[in-house]
Amino acid sequence: MSFEFLTLAYTPFVDALSIHEQWYLLIVPMVLFVAIGYKAVRVSDMGGYWKNVFVFVVQVLGVLAVLAVAFTIVVTVLVPMLAPMPG
């Protein structure tokens, strides 16, 4: 008997999400939580805490975005230029 047609019901925190096409967006909440936790034990004055968290998130996401663009250029432009594939 085949069970391939069965679709399991989703239970949060028990079943995995099915967001395979949007996986890269998960970096945003991940960086946000890292910033919240890290800056809690790093900033000297909690008065500027949220500003520090914001700057941290922007810096990490900004660098990742730049790296993404850079690697995209390498893979789609530079590599085909340096080592063109036949056909």
């Binding site: 949060p12 925190f13 028990v14 079943d15 995995a16 999400l17 967001i19 998960l26 909440p29 991940m30 946000l32 939580f33 890292v34 910033a35 919240i36 936790g37 890290y38 800056k39 809690a40 034990v41 805490y49």
Partner: peptide, 18 residues
């Protein structure tokens, strides 16, 4: 805030991968 950061990351992992 430390609690929010750590449990948020841990909960996010469980939310994504179950």
């Amino acid at each position: 805030m430390a609690m929010v950061g750590v449990l948020g990351l841990f909960g996010l992992g469980l939310l994504i991968g179950g």
